[in-house]
Amino acid sequence: MPKGGQGRADLIYGLVAAVAASAMFAHTFSARYSNEFLFGDVSTVFFPRLLLGTIALLSLGLAFKGLRSTSTGGLPKIHFRRFALTFGATLVGIVLVWYLGYLIGMPVGVFLVGLALGYPRKLILAATSVAAPLIVWLVLAKFAQVSFPTGTLF
């Protein structure tokens, strides 16, 4: 087994990718992809299978490299808690924008992401969270008629 974080990471990434590629490959055999040939053409799954096979091979290569890795170097040090909070905040923000619409969801989302990142001045953050999405909305949606999510709940 590899000693360092780098090697372990390569091994894991490689295996995950190989499994995903193989699963997709198997999927290409399902009934929905049968036969829409024109003359002289290959099937619609020819090229995808070629690519998926290559991905599987390369991933196994990566896993192999990770297995045999002798380096003790690791991955960069990360603040897991802050990362998890930020990612969670972005997800919540996206869900809110989708269900409640941009005007409600985005300010909340911006605020949450800022909080998660640790911006210290909450008042300024709150003000920016409201002002920035609003300005963008006024300019893009009202003026330039760009399409914005309007929320699926109402």
Binding site: T90, G93, I94, V97, W98, Y102, M106, G109, V110, F111, V113, G114, L117, G118, Y119, I124, L125, T128, S129, A132, P133, V136, L140, V146, S147, F148, P149
Partner: peptide, 25 residues
Amino acid sequence: TLLMPLVFMMSVVGAYAIRSNPVDI
């Protein structure tokens, strides 16, 4: 830490603006 949330905001706006498809978000 103040800029990144705004980058996030523009990301959501930009993703949806092109073709109004939730997949993009």
